[in-house]
Design a protein around this nucleic acid. Structure first.
Length: 350
DNA sequence: TAGCCGTGGCA
DNA sequence: TTGCCAAGGCT
């Protein structure tokens, strides 16, 4: 029994994690949660219909091109974390032109990565991507590693990104689970409107169960389910009328029951995050260190040109009444390595 | 593990 | 207009 199950998980990095955590409970647990509905149709039919739909309607994205390097795929996956495709596209093109290899990025200061990150958001991702490039050069001879475990060890690469790069850049069979795939599984298989707030072990088991056994098919399946979640099975107003598996959907069959919980929104106005974002916008524009007192002056006095949108400078100016908030933001940026003190002013890391 | 971390489009 | 949401990761 143990031998059989270990062999089944052996080629599967996530399976190995489960094995090391607790083999008895994992091995003897059923493939599907006890109370969960069964898929309702055989997986082969789902595979055929969803991958067939993918072949016909998939977006033509540059990181899906056969000629795209593993580095290009890795950069895209980091940029796409919590960020829509349309905003990633132009920045990805610029990055791959400027830094076509990990060594090219590793040869420049981290601050250049942060600056060229632009307004993608979560700029610490730029910092981690730069650190990942350094690690790739130092520990992997300049080539993006191709297996899950080595990818997972890179800065900014978590379980999703490691599986995605191994699958999409190297053709490996991996259980890829992102927010799109989770939502498709929740509706199609489990019959609920939304997946649970955080990724659960049963979701991983379900995804592993649904994964086609053949390497190539599994890669297409991962991409196809993700695309289905992004284009059809969307969080708000899903387009069920054009869904290739609508007649197999447990959520539709159940009468589209509403979510069992209400997601808590992310606050923004008046938060430290807003101040951090405003400070970062100024630092990206500045070519000399910015003294702390400058952050609360009139935008025009900073000597920068408005960048056409004008949000960051005016937003920062409007925060005059919260000096302690600015202090927290600046201290946090220093701690995170997104800014450094130089000659009495703040600048991007050199 | 729950909280934190940017940004902008859209309903 | 306000709030939701987007190919998550880290502590």
């Amino acid at each position: 029994m143990v031998t059989v199950c270990f062999r089944a998980a052996g080629s599967h990095p996530l399976g190995r994690i489960h094995y090391s955590v607790g083999i008895e409970t994992k091995i003897h647990s059923p493939a599907l949660p006890a109370g969960a509905p069964s898929p309702g149709s055989d997986p082969g039919a789902l595979h055929h219909r969803i991958t067939g739909w993918f072949t016909e309607t998939a977006r033509d994205l540059p990181w899906r091109d056969a000629g795209c390097s593993p580095w290009g795929v890795l950069v895209s996956e980091i940029m796409l974390q919590q960020t829509p495709v349309v905003r990633v596209l132009p920045v990805w093109q610029e990055w791959l032109t400027r830094w076509p290899t990990p060594a090219a990025l590793a040869g420049e200061p981290a601050g250049e990565a942060v600056r060229s990150w632009g307004r993608l958001g979560y700029p610490r991702r730029a910092l981690r991507l730069h650190a990942a490039a350094l690690a790739i050069v130092r520990e992997h001879g300049g080539g993006v590693p191709g297996n899950y475990t080595e990818l997972l060890a890179l800065p900014g690469v978590g379980s999703y990104t490691a599986a995605a790069v191994a699958a999409f850049a190297f053709g490996r069979r991996e259980t890829v689970v992102d927010t799109n795939i989770r939502r498709v599984h929740a509706r199609l298989i489990s019959g609920v409107a939304l997946p649970s707030p955080s990724l659960t072990a049963s979701e991983m088991r379900l995804a592993a169960e649904l994964l086609p056994h053949d390497d190539g098919t599994s890669v297409r399946w991962n991409a196809a389910v993700m695309e289905l979640g992004a284009l059809v099975c969307t969080a708000r107003a899903p387009k069920c009328a054009v869904c290739p598996v609508r007649d197999s959907c447990a959520w539709l069959a159940a009468g589209e029951p509403p979510p069992s919980y209400t997601p808590k929104g992310q606050s923004w106005h008046g938060t430290d995050r807003q101040v951090r974002g405003a400070v970062m916008a100024v630092l990206r524009l500045a070519d000399t260190p910015v003294p702390p007192e400058m952050f609360q002056q009139e935008p025009a006095d900073l000597g920068f040109e408005e960048d056409g949108i004008g949000v960051p400078l005016s937003a920062l100016h409007g925060l005059n009444s919260a000096p302690e908030q600015l202090e927290r933001a600046l201290a946090g940026l220093l701690t995170d390595g997104l800014a450094e003190l130089h000659q009495g002013g703040y600048r991007l890391p050199a």
